[in-house]
Write a protein that binds this DNA or RNA. Structure first.
Lengths: 255, 255
DNA sequence: CAGTGGTCTAGACCACCGC
DNA sequence: CGGTGGTCTAGACCACTGG
């Protein structure tokens, strides 16, 4: 399989021939990718059957299947035998818990309750604007959020969201928000969180952070800096999460 | 693609037909996997060309390629266009550094120097014997190892190796050992480290640990508990690595 | 240049799903 | 049962690698 530029020009805006040196299935995948990221097919819904897609594009079944396989590997599509090929739904949430074990072994990890401690509209810092792809001086929505299990605080989060995409969240009452933000982003703002990158590091809690987590100032903590992206690869959330370092646990595979 | 038992019976010890409900390429892959893990093809060497393999097994080229694709996805094989299909060489080493940034950004991460602080043969604990697949009361080789960059200690390791597989390391002078253990395992003991699992957690240094890392007792540290496996999936090393928590940094992808 | 894997075709048939 | 994706075939031709 050739290594190809996965972000190459979609066919909608170009000719109907693969670029020189590009495989036919890579080209097909680009076209399908564009139709997905531009919202022609909504997350959770099925694409047309492969036989039809192959006919439409004038290519053999096997070739079309190679294109679909690329998009499956990218995480954009999901195939279900006997049912169809579906655009993947966004991330469900609660994924921060994979870095911590707040309960004893064996217990099920329930979704933590969420409470919004603060919400404000502010000017994006240079770093924030850069990461979110906003012009200098753009405004952002920032949240302070505490997550608790059985009433015990466990994670403290600072979240930055671009405006105006998330304007709907600046208005609604934070009392009514869900425990999971990503499904709410989807429902209220039509934004799908498709992929995220978490950078882990270690630090000590400030006095205020410690107070909110009911720990002492200077207590060791693990910091997770998340950058979240939508289907089109646009950054749509910056989040910093703090949790007790003694509850930290994570397993990585090496190959 | 069907979800299949990747460890199912190799064909060498069974009939020449796929098990009922198993695909032909899955069956083929099992056979090839067995020939690789049993050492018929050595890591780093090439398999016969696909056309030949397909003919030998009496199957179409496409089917054989699907089998090879499975083994590539497993990390057992590596295909190189125009050159051949190769059994993957083992892990190179230095992979612990991916959890830490001991140098300033931009600097290249050199391989740390290694010094063996202690080496001994001991009775395996119950946990060790269990993990390594040894009978109760078996003996193991244990190492204390300090890794340094520019003469500054950075990682302290405790390593447990099964005997008699690693008997050659119990004899040779530790002065002459390489900075990287895995290539040495390969060269001296014929053991290939193919895959590993690292479990991260957080703790505080004991007085002795701190002394060796030139930090204070009680200094925060990140602990990496590694379990390493050979091509056949046998556990062949247990390792616990300690490093300064303030140097910890790791990036994970969410999808 | 000979030998390798990569792409593509056009078709047959199988296995799974939901009605 | 009809519709979906999954498996398999037999072949042609392309693209990369190394001597």
């Amino acid at each position: 399989m050739l290594i190809q530029d996965l972000t190459s020009t979609p066919p909608a805006a170009s000719g109907d021939q693969p670029a020189p040196g590009q495989s036919r299935y890579g080209w097909l995948a680009s076209g399908l990718r564009a139709r997905i990221t531009q919202g022609e097919w909504i997350p959770g819904t099925a694409l047309p059957p492969e036989a039809l897609l192959a006919k439409e594009h004038g290519v053999a079944l096997g070739t079309l299947r190679q294109a679909l396989a690329l998009l499956v590997a990218e995480g954009l599509l999901e195939r279900r035998h006997g049912r169809g090929t579906f655009v993947r739904a966004g991330l469900g949430g609660a994924s921060m818990l994979r870095f911590f074990r707040f309960r004893n072994a064996g217990e099920l990890q329930a979704t933590p309750q969420s409470s919004i401690l603060a919400r404000s509209v502010a000017l994006a810092s240079v770093n924030e604007a850069d990461a979110l792809g906003l012009p200098a001086g753009a405004s952002v929505l920032t949240l302070e959020r505490l997550r608790s299990l059985d009433g015990r605080p466990c994670l403290l989060e600072h979240i930055t969201l671009p405006l105006p995409a998330f304007a709907a969240l600046a208005a609604s009452s934070t009392e009514d928000w869900d425990d999971l933000l990503y499904p709410m982003y989807q429902r209220v703002c039509g934004v799908t969180v498709h992929r995220a990158q978490d950078q882990l590091s270690f630090g000590l809690l400030s006095a205020e952070q410690a107070r909110r987590l009911q720990l002492e100032a200077g207590h060791p903590c693990v910091q997770v800096q998340r950058t979240a992206f939508d289907l089109a690869g646009r950054c749509i959330e910056l989040r910093t999460t703090l949790g007790d370092a003694f509850a930290f646990q994570y397993t990585a595979q090496v190959r």
